[in-house]
């Protein structure tokens, strides 16, 4: 009894320490973002502050190209998500339902691509994109992001479609539905959790990418947020207030995404039974 009790508390203690490591930087980010510049470097650096202002955020939106970066990031991320969802769904379906030559190699190859760090692909891509004129374009960066997120998504969707019983699809066929109609009306709803995870994964990957955007987008007007944020670090000054304010804003969509869609992610594992 007491032993069990002790174990329980030990576990909570570990969790608490872990949570501290995860949450404190987030907290510090938020606090710094909301502290006026004049107070930022004046000791004492209190852990809990009481005076807040939106000065950093106001400056971020008016005096920097933050909104341009944000717009670029959104366009690239959405493009990546749309292509990923469509391609991985169709590929996953094909892999799970058809037998064809080289299927095993294909599936293995999707995982091999993970052995290469993005930077290794970014430099050849820079050369290729320069040659075909895709540098500094949304399409080019979207393609680059798709190239690293799609393989895993194909894998995820393949696994998902394997779990959806064939009889579900066959029931639709015997009901008169064509293969495409059965895919859309019967299979996709069953695979929705998989599709949502694929979307989240590709969004997060594109939203957070630094390497590709840094190398492929040389024009500041085409910078995405992670690269744009780096411009706040200048040789003579590091604008901590601006960096933290933009970090705060950048992290919001990710929080929102996980918060609103985790219901689907959790629900997903029981559907299709």
């Amino acid at each position: 009894m007491t032993r069990e009790f002790a174990w329980r508390w030990m576990r909570f203690l570990w969790l608490a320490v872990g949570m501290l490591f995860v949450c404190f930087p987030l907290y510090w980010m938020a606090v710094t973002a909301l502290t006026p510049r004049t107070e930022l470097f004046r000791p004492p650096y209190d852990v809990i502050r009481f005076s807040y202002s939106l000065e950093n955020i106001r400056e971020l939106l008016s005096a920097t190209q933050f909104l341009t970066f944000m717009g670029n990031s959104l366009i690239v991320a959405l493009g990546t998500v749309v292509i990923n969802v469509m391609a991985s769904t169709l590929a996953g379906y094909a892999l799970s339902r058809f037998e064809f030559r080289g299927k095993k190699t294909f599936v293995a190859a999707t995982l091999w691509t993970y052995m290469f760090p993005p930077i290794l692909l970014a430099i050849p891509l820079y050369l290729v994109f320069s040659y075909i004129g895709l540098r500094n374009s949304y399409g080019g960066l979207i393609l680059a992001h798709v190239s690293i997120s799609l393989p895993l998504n194909v894998w995820i969707m393949w696994q998902y479609f394997q779990v959806v019983p064939r009889s579900l699809e066959e029931a639709a066929w015997t009901s008169g539905a064509s293969r495409l109609r059965a895919l859309i009306e019967v299979l996709l709803p069953s695979a929705l959790p998989g599709i949502i995870s694929a979307a989240i994964f590709s969004f997060a990957l594109s939203w957070n990418d630094f390497a590709f955007a840094f190398i492929l987008q040389t024009d500041i007007a085409m910078f995405t947020l992670p690269v744009g944020l780096a411009t706040f670090v200048e040789q003579s000054a590091i604008h901590w207030g601006l960096i933290m304010a933009s970090s705060l804003i950048v992290s919001l969509p990710t929080f929102a995404l996980v918060f609103f869609l985790q219901r689907y992610l959790m629900h997903g594992f029981s559907i299709g039974k």
Partner: peptide, 20 residues
Amino acid sequence: VTTQKRGIGMVFQDIALFPF
């Protein structure tokens, strides 16, 4: 003739109702 055009009704071993 394809399944769709055979005009049959079928009940499956694992019931296979559309869960959603």
